[in-house]
């Protein structure tokens, strides 16, 4: 049953998108060509930092959403609740140098430079569908490494049942943090077994290049079977803990946003249905697609929640 669901992801509606994309690709190619004729050096810059990264396991065979769309439609409340404004405002964030503080129930706590983390964790490409709690989705070729591999290197103790992530707090630049829309800094978390699942990754890039600031540079979480707000951006702190962390959206509206936040078409948000999603980049006449349980990754992750009533543990 679950395998059948998976097959549907790969086949349905991709043809339509491919046709759509090919039109955009044509426009892009034409633009690139004309730009290339004027400035031949541009072609090399286009290649990107991670152009030759190998494709990792679990990467879906899905047509990626237009890069422009992914880079101009971001929920980044640290900058603005407006998806376009946050894109522009995020340019002001300095992401180099960057370090991550590791604390809590762990044998190797400390402050780690991002470059050192990247040396230990070679990156790969993972094409995942990204499903927002606002009922839209896109397909992104992330560049990153398995979260579990990194966490293991810090040697969490047996007391560590959860891992908590914190976004940088910098209200000078992140003007959205000056208002009390959420309780800053943004905090997210996973149960240890969720964090160790090979589908969960730490992303440092997308589309063969570094992450744009608005998409969470320089280091963000990607948990493809959960709603997008779980995939916290610009991480500066990782804490291992015995107790379930209090996460940002859950704190602000506990009845609307749970700790687990698994994509689930059967459980609506208190204010809207989650049965369908708008696929970004498709034409305005394309109907929404049916949302899949665990965003289509049920075969891989449903076991993590066996025995749990998912209508209660939202």
């Amino acid at each position: 049953m679950l395998i059948k669901t998976k097959a549907i992801i790969l086949s349905s509606q991709i043809t339509d998108r491919a046709v759509f994309e090919s039109r955009r690709e044509f426009i892009k190619a034409a633009t690139a060509l004309s730009a290339g004729l004027m400035l031949p050096s541009l072609g090399q810059a286009e290649a990107g930092k991670y152009a030759d990264v190998p494709v990792g396991p679990y990467s879906a065979k899905l047509q990626a959403t237009d890069r422009e769309d992914v880079g101009s439609y971001t929920n980044y409340y640290e900058f603005s609740s407006n998806k376009k404004d946050s894109t522009v405002l995020a340019r002001g964030l300095k992401t180099k140098p960057w370090s991550v503080e590791v604390v809590g129930d762990v044998e190797k706590p400390g402050v780690y430079n991002l470059e050192d983390i990247l040396k230990d964790n070679p990156v790969q490409e993972r094409i995942y569908r990204f499903r927002c709690v606002e009922a839209w989705s896109m397909v992104v070729p992330w560049i990153g490494f398995p979260l579990g591999d990194m966490l293991q290197r810090f040697k969490p103790t047996s007391k560590a049942k959860f891992v908590e992530f914190t976004t940088i707090y910098n209200p000078e630049i992140m003007v959205g943090q000056r208002s009390g829309v959420l309780d800053w800094p943004y905090v997210e978390g996973l149960r240890m077994d969720e964090a160790m699942h090979p589908l969960a990754i730490m992303a440092t890039g997308m589309y063969g290049d570094e992450l744009p600031n608005q998409n969470g540079a320089p280091l963000r979480l990607i948990v493809p079977w959960k709603y997008g707000f779980k995939s916290i951006k610009a991480i500066v702190k990782i804490r291992f803990t015995e107790n379930m962390p209090e996460t940002a959206w859950h704190k602000s509206a506990p009845n609307e946003y749970g700790f687990y936040a698994n994509v689930n078409p059967e459980v609506s948000h208190p204010r809207w249905s989650q049965s369908r999603e708008r696929v970004l980049g498709s034409s305005i006449f394309t109907p929404k697609r049916d949302t899949e349980k665990f965003n289509g990754y049920g075969a891989e992750v449903a076991g993590l929640y066996s025995g749990m009533d998912l209508t209660r543990f939202i």
Partner: peptide, 13 residues
């Protein structure tokens, strides 16, 4: 079908 599913679930709609 989409109307029947989505509208009653949304007080704002």
């Amino acid at each position: 079908e989409a109307f029947k599913d989505e509208v009653p679930k949304s007080p704002y709609i």
